[in-house]
C-alpha cells in the first residue's frame, strides 16, 4: 500500500479529496495540458501532504461503536466492515449513525519509521 518513492500511503487517494484530485488531473491529461508523469508526481505530493496535514492540523477525537461484520488483515492493512455504527464526536454534541461503514486502515508505525 505504501508508495515506495515517497514512503507514504496512497490510501487517502480513495477519499473524496483524492478522488476529486484524480478527476481534475484526468481532465487535464485528456485535454493534453499536462503529462501523466506530472500527474503521478502530484499524487505523490498529495499522499505526503494529506498525511502531514492530518497529523498536524487536526485535533478532533472520535469514538464509535458498532457490530463488526467482517474483518480482514492483509499486507499490514486492516479492513473492517462494521454495521449499525454510532460515531460520537469528542465534544459530545453530535452523534452520527450509519448502518454500514467500511474502515480501511494502514499501520501508523510504518510512516513513523520512514
Amino acid at each position: 500500500m505504501a508508495t515506495n518513492s515517497t514512503n507514504f500511503y496512497d490510501l487517502y487517494r480513495h477519499g473524496s479529496l483524492g478522488v476529486t484530485l484524480t478527476d481534475a488531473l484526468d481532465d487535464l491529461i485528456s485535454a493534453e495540458r499536462i503529462d501523466p508523469q506530472l500527474a503521478i508526481k502530484v499524487l505523490g505530493q498529495f499522499d505526503r501532504i494529506v498525511a502531514e496535514s492530518l497529523q498536524e492540523k487536526v485535533k478532533a477525537r472520535l469514538t464509535f461503536k458498532g457490530s463488526l461484520d467482517t474483518y480482514r488483515f492483509c499486507d499490514e492493512v486492516w479492513t473492517f466492515l462494521i454495521k449499525n455504527v454510532t460515531f460520537k464526536m469528542d465534544n459530545g454534541a453530535s452523534t452520527v449513525v450509519a448502518d454500514k461503514v467500511k474502515i480501511v486502515s494502514c499501520s501508523a508505525k510504518r510512516t513513523d519509521e520512514k
Binding site: 487536526v58 478532533a60 472520535l62 469514538t63 461503536k65 458498532g66 462494521i82 464526536m89 452520527v96 474502515i103
Partner: peptide, 15 residues
C-alpha cells in the same frame, strides 16, 4: 458518512 465528511486525529472504536 451520510454524505458528510469528517476528519479526526484520534479515534477509538469498540465493536
Amino acid at each position: 458518512v451520510n454524505n458528510r465528511e469528517y476528519v479526526f486525529h484520534k479515534a477509538t472504536g469498540e465493536y
